[in-house]
Computed example of a mutant assay.
Amino acid sequence: MSDPTTRRLAAQVAAHESWASTSDRAARTAKARAALQARFENEVDPHRLLDAEERARRVEHARSAYYARLALKRHQAVRNITRATEALNAADTEIQETA
């Protein structure tokens, strides 16, 4: 089971089976959500000098920036894949035309 596609599919099966047997999704993900919240709080106010309202406002912006950055990276990756695919198709066409 060393090929990446097989590993990915097996992991998907395991994940779906695990979620199918989970009765309380919120409880299962609570620690991860709390850790992400703490990460953003530590990022914007590591010494806890801000009042709770200002910290919450900044945390929300930090969270938005985090997800916007992920979206940007995804967009760039898709664009690069598209360009590479177009270059590959152009090369294939050139090869077929010269054959």
Rank of each mutant, 00 (worst) to 15 (best):
L36N: 06
A27S: 10
L9P: 02
R25S: 04
A32C: 01
H16F: 12
T6Y: 11
L9C: 07
S64H: 08
A68I: 13
R25K: 02
V59N: 01
A34L: 06
T5C: 06
A87P: 07
A62Y: 03
A56V: 03
D3H: 04
W19D: 05
P4H: 07
E86M: 15
A87E: 15
P46F: 04
T82W: 07
Y66G: 03
H61R: 15
P46M: 09
T5F: 10
E43V: 03
T85Y: 07
Y66E: 07
A65I: 05
D51N: 09
S2I: 11
H75F: 09
A77D: 14
R58P: 04
R55G: 04
S18M: 09
A32R: 05
H61P: 00
V44W: 03
L9R: 08
E86P: 06
A35S: 06
A65D: 12
A26N: 00
A56W: 01
V59Y: 00
A91M: 10
N42G: 13
R79N: 12
V13K: 09
T98F: 10
A87D: 15
R79T: 13
R57W: 04
M1T: 06
L9G: 06
A10N: 10
L9D: 09
A38T: 04
L70Q: 15
S21C: 04
R57K: 14
T82E: 14
R58G: 05
R58I: 04
L49P: 02
Q76A: 14
A27P: 02
Q76R: 14
R74Q: 14
E53N: 08
A34V: 01
R58W: 03
V78S: 05
N89P: 01
N42K: 11
A11W: 03
I95Y: 07
R57P: 04
A52P: 01
E86C: 15
L36A: 06
R33Y: 03
F40G: 03
R25P: 00
I81D: 13
R48E: 13
R33H: 10
T85Q: 12
S21M: 07
Q12R: 01
R39N: 06
T85S: 11
V59W: 03
D51C: 01
A14G: 09
R83G: 15
R69M: 02
I81R: 12
E43Q: 09
E94P: 02
T93Q: 11
T82L: 14
T22P: 01
S21N: 11
A20L: 08
V78C: 05
L49G: 13
A11F: 06
N42S: 14
L50K: 00
S64N: 09
R7V: 14
L49H: 03
L49S: 07
A77R: 15
E97M: 12
Y67N: 08
A14K: 10
S18T: 10
A35V: 01
